[in-house]
């Protein structure tokens, strides 16, 4: 279907006026750089396996209520009658049975399997949303700073530096617990949805900077290219330049930044829950599960094992996919 460049050049050179074309004939479709990248990705086995694993996790997470119905156990149901006097699960390996595939939590006796499904839902939602928001903000800031230069660049770069200098953890520890008090009275419950939004907000406030820097650098190198000047010479306005000319060339770094941001937010949210400022009881959450399970390493290792392994697989799959994506989108081949 496609001519080799040399052949095509020779033919074009020698037959300046090619065959007369019928106006309604469908043109031959070339392979865009995006399609080439997708083909390369398909060939990478690690990427495909990671992709399948991730899709599986996402489907499980989205279908959490359905799974709870089929499984027969909800995430907040307690089975304390299946615990011994010390609050430890009866039976083998932390209480694994046909009814409770991953066993029970000590003390409260909740089912670990269904709590993990729900925990995955929470974590994935927060991670994706935070990654989306930070990428959007970062891209907007980076494009404006990179393209407009001058005072706009100076101001945005200064804001970026300040945001990078602020200590995220200290800020989070100071702000997150008190934000609920501002919006909800002393007798009102802080709903989980609000906690989720606060976490996304905290991540967004600090996470956009690396994407902004990345995009700004790319834009600076792109804006001097002659196709941009050609657009300006044709009378293009700022909007066209940014969105029609520059943005299509930025997809590769943006996509890679996004795909690596998601796992970092999964672990980030788990870490905040570990410190007690993430998602609170009784909503299921990976980080809190791991935090509560570590003292039981000697006495109920299954309790530590399941959430630990799951978050490990999840983050590993994302990282492998992100790396493969970066390789597939290698700019050298987009020539």
């Amino acid at each position: 279907m496609s001519l080799s460049p040399v052949e095509g050049a020779a033919r074009a050179e020698m037959e300046p006026a090619a065959d007369p074309v019928k106006p309604d004939e469908q043109g031959i479709v070339g392979r865009s750089p995006g399609q080439l990248a997708w083909a390369r990705l398909r060939r990478d086995r690690t990427a495909m396996v990671s992709g399948v694993v991730l899709v599986l996790f996402v489907v499980l997470a989205l279908a959490a209520p359905l799974i709870a119905k089929l499984y027969g156990v909800g995430p907040n149901e307690q089975f304390q009658q299946l615990l011994d006097g010390n609050g430890m699960p009866l039976g083998y390996v932390g209480g694994i049975t046909g009814d409770h595939w991953f066993g029970l939590e000590p003390r409260l006796g909740r089912d670990i399997f269904i709590r993990m499904i729900y925990g995955m839902r929470t974590s994935l939602f927060i991670a994706f949303a935070a990654a989306l928001v930070t990428t959007a903000i970062g891209v907007a800031a980076g494009i404006l700073a990179g393209f407009l230069g001058g005072i706009v660049d100076t101001v945005i770069s200064w804001i970026t530096d300040v945001a990078l200098a602020l200590p995220f953890l200290i800020f989070a520890l100071a702000v997150v617990p008190t934000v609920g008090l501002r919006f909800y009275g002393p007798r009102e419950e802080v709903p989980p949805a609000f906690q989720v939004i606060v976490l996304i907000g905290i991540f967004a406030a600090f996470g956009w900077t690396s994407t902004a820097r990345l995009v700004r650098g790319q834009v600076i190198s792109l804006r001097e290219r002659e196709f941009v000047e050609a657009a300006r010479a044709s009378g293009a306005g700022l909007g066209h330049m940014l969105f029609r000319q520059l943005l299509p060339n930025l997809w590769a770094p943006i996509l890679v930044a996004f795909s690596l941001a998601v796992p970092s937010y999964i672990t980030g949210e788990a870490a905040l829950s570990f410190l007690g400022i993430g998602i609170l009881e009784p909503t299921a959450d990976f980080g809190r599960m791991i935090f509560q399970s570590i003292p039981y390493l000697q006495t109920d290792p299954a309790y530590v094992f399941f959430p630990g392994v799951t978050i490990f697989i999840l983050v590993l799959a994302f990282n492998l996919l992100g790396d493969a994506l970066r390789d597939a989108l290698d700019p050298k081949s987009s020539r």
Binding site: S2, P5, V6, G8, A9, A12, A17, E25, G27, I28
Partner: peptide
Amino acid sequence: ELVGLNPEHYNRYPHEFSGGQ
């Protein structure tokens, strides 16, 4: 057509053409 290229190639990408093209 005016510049001597095959008009059917309008759906191709620059990386598929030579410098002269």
